[in-house]
């Protein structure tokens, strides 16, 4: 029963990882930018929610309405002002710019808010759970996270497949020059895609903060690695693959946690490296766009 419980919890944890991975996947799929600051953007989202709560007393759910679009706008302008220029300089430049951001954010956060955890209380949601069987309870919050992750992935998939903006994004990913010939400003398309990635990152960050009961400046580093591992385990280019990858990572971590509380991160990393060596294309064979 302990194992079964760990499995279920791991699957639900995978929802969080998938949410983290989705933004990374979008940025890479459409812009070919690996955003090394992705985890830090998630942290910023969680910090904004925590600060809104502690200074203004705004409920977490309410703050999402502001935080998510706000970081979307930030993403738009980061792309237009920094990354677009970097993209024209070659392959290294965008990486170095995002790494610069990844260094700036946690250190600025430590200076501004100390290294203490900024609490994101969710009332009784954090402790409420549903009993499935004897010794098998699942928390409402992890379940909700999983649900949101699935909805987000499905929504993104639909958005890219069906809407005009989504079509532009796929076109920009394939051939931005031709898109320009068709009269579409590819820079704006890129910027919208980055905005979308940032917004999803912020949402994922807030969910992460709720799950952990708060957020620290060091979480970004962990999150970007989890997100990346989920993307690679799932297989590059498949959005549903990121969900599968997230679940594999989540299960690996919770199962390792059953053995020893010190092991989850190490085992998660080793599972990732094993997948990389044994099945570098990921566990889900993809034919999908991004």
């Amino acid at each position: 029963m302990v194992i079964l419980n760990a499995l279920v919890q791991g699957v639900l944890l995978g929802g969080l990882f998938a949410m983290a991975a989705l933004g990374l996947s979008i940025a890479f799929g459409i812009l070919r930018v690996v955003n090394l600051a992705h985890g830090e953007i998630m942290t910023v989202g969680a910090y904004l929610a925590a600060v809104a709560l502690s200074t203004l007393g705004v409920n977490v759910w309410l703050s999402l309405i502001v935080v998510v679009p706000l970081l979307g706008v930030v993403g738009y302008w980061v792309q237009r002002l920094l990354l677009q220029r970097a993209l024209s300089l070659g392959e290294l430049a965008p990486l170095l710019v995002t790494f610069g951001i990844a260094i700036i954010i946690p250190n600025a956060l430590i200076e501004l808010f100390t290294t203490n955890k900024q609490a994101i209380p969710t009332g009784d949601l954090a402790v409420r759970s549903v009993q499935l069987a004897e010794g098998l309870r699942i928390g409402v919050l992890p379940l909700l996270t999983m649900l949101v992750a699935v909805l987000l992935i499905a929504g993104t998939q639909l958005f890219l497949a069906r809407t005009r903006s989504g079509r532009y994004m796929r076109a920009a990913a394939d051939d931005s020059e031709t898109l320009r010939l068709m009269g579409v400003d590819h820079r704006r398309v890129y910027a919208y895609a980055m905005g979308l990635a940032f917004a999803i990152a912020a949402l994922g960050g807030v969910f992460f903060g709720m799950r952990q009961g708060g957020v620290t400046p060091f979480d970004g580093q962990l999150l970007v690695l989890f997100a990346f591992e989920a993307v690679i385990i799932g297989g590059l280019g498949s959005l549903w693959g990121t969900l599968a990858g997230g679940i594999v990572l989540g299960v690996a971590q919770t199962l390792a946690g059953v053995v020893s509380p010190e092991l989850p991160l190490l085992v998660g990393n080793l599972v990732f490296l094993a997948v990389l060596v044994l099945r570098p294309t990921g566990i889900v064979r993809s034919k999908v766009v991004v």
Binding site: R32, V34, L36, L95, F228, I232, L265, F272, L273, L276
Partner: peptide
């Protein structure tokens, strides 16, 4: 891994 994913992959290796 290649390019940006190589970068982040080396980071994971360092953590491991």
């Amino acid at each position: 891994l290649r390019g940006g994913y190589f970068a982040i992959g080396t980071w994971v290796i360092a953590e491991a």
